[in-house]
Amino acid sequence: MPRFSGKTVIITGSSNGIGRSAALLFAQEGANVTITGRNSDRLEETRQILLKSGVPEKNINSVVADVTTSSGQDQLINTTLAKFSKIDVLINNAGASIPDATGATGIDQGIDIYQKTLQLNLQSVIEMTKKVKPHLIETKGEIVNISSIAGGSHAVSNFISCFHEPNCFQQPDFIYYSCAKSALDQFTRSSAIDLIKYGIRVNSVSPGVVATGFIGAAGLDNEAAKKFYKHMAAHKECIPAGVAGQPEDIATIILFLADRKLSSYIIGQSIVADGGSTLMMAMQFGDAM
């Protein structure tokens, strides 16, 4: 029997990238899945990928919704309960680094960018966790948050600007995104202690460079994004493994953390999956020669 047979999973931000890959793996492992995103065309692509892989339509709940809004969150939860009657797993995957339309970086970015970034990457996770809590208490369920190595103790450089100017002096230009992911890591740890008394486990994954739509959302077109991932993979000081991660690399870790039989003793932890990048961050852009 598939390991998630009979389980119901909500995956935010599942219209592409890591969320789409996770939805496919969960569904192939027998789960009922609620997929969601703001772009109806991309979300339909995800649904079709699941159907073509042999997933029954009755196991898919596709919801076009904005997870940063209360109404969008309620729609996700209510339609899931209406179709599947319960919730076993919440995957808080939706997230992005939001560029300032003026081109400003660092602390020169508008406070509106800060607010939007934290609303998407942190506040929506907190709100979804609060709203799903009573349902996960009933099922003794699981929560997996998708964080980032950007939330670590190092300052995070703007890889995009440095792709265009390899010799530039690095500045922590993704400052609000990094703040949001750092806060998400703390929320994961603290909520894990708060919720384990109800039988709910909370953990997270911190990806490094993964070939998704993230870089495009941050300002590069598709062709430039491809060059970016190729450039990063070719530089061992950036990714020691020599290859950019793929969405399924992270999705398999998500399923591991959602599988109580395999990861029951892991509580409030974040698994870093970055091809070794964080081992090099302190000297990442130095040239010893």
Rank of each mutant, 00 (worst) to 15 (best):
M1K: 13
P2R: 11
R3Y: 10
G6A: 05
T8K: 04
T8I: 10
I10E: 11
I11Q: 10
I18C: 01
I18F: 04
G19I: 01
G19W: 02
R20T: 02
A22K: 03
A23P: 07
A23L: 02
A23T: 00
L24A: 12
L25Q: 11
L25S: 04
F26E: 01
Q28I: 03
G30T: 06
V33S: 05
R38Y: 02
R42G: 03
L43W: 03
E44W: 03
T46A: 08
R47Q: 15
I49M: 11
S53W: 00
S62C: 09
V67M: 07
T68M: 07
S70V: 14
S71N: 12
S71E: 15
D74A: 15
I77G: 06
N78L: 15
T80L: 07
K83C: 00
L90E: 11
G95N: 08
I98G: 11
I98W: 10
I98M: 10
T102K: 12
A104G: 06
T105M: 12
I107L: 15
I107S: 13
D108C: 06
D112K: 07
Q115D: 15
Q115P: 02
L120Y: 02
L122C: 03
Q123K: 09
S124Y: 08
V125Q: 08
V125W: 01
I126E: 05
I126H: 10
E127Y: 08
E127D: 14
K130W: 08
L136C: 11
T139L: 12
K140E: 15
K140Y: 13
G141R: 08
E142C: 15
V144A: 08
A150E: 13
G151S: 07
A155T: 13
F159E: 05
S161H: 08
F163K: 01
N167A: 12
Q170W: 11
Q171K: 15
Q171W: 07
I175R: 00
Y176T: 02
S178D: 06
K181W: 10
S182H: 03
T188H: 03
S190Y: 13
L195T: 04
Y198E: 15
Y198C: 10
N203K: 01
S206V: 01
G208E: 11
G208T: 10
V210C: 00
T212F: 05
I215H: 07
G216R: 15
E223L: 12
A224V: 14
A225Q: 13
K226V: 04
H231A: 06
H231V: 03
A233H: 03
H235Y: 00
K236H: 13
C238W: 12
I239G: 05
Q246D: 11
P247T: 07
D249I: 04
D249T: 07
D249W: 07
I254R: 09
A258L: 09
R260G: 08
R260Q: 12
L262N: 09
S264Y: 04
I267Y: 11
I267E: 06
S270N: 12
D274E: 10
G275Q: 01
M281S: 12
Q284D: 04
Q284T: 03
F285A: 02
G286F: 10
D287A: 13
M289C: 04
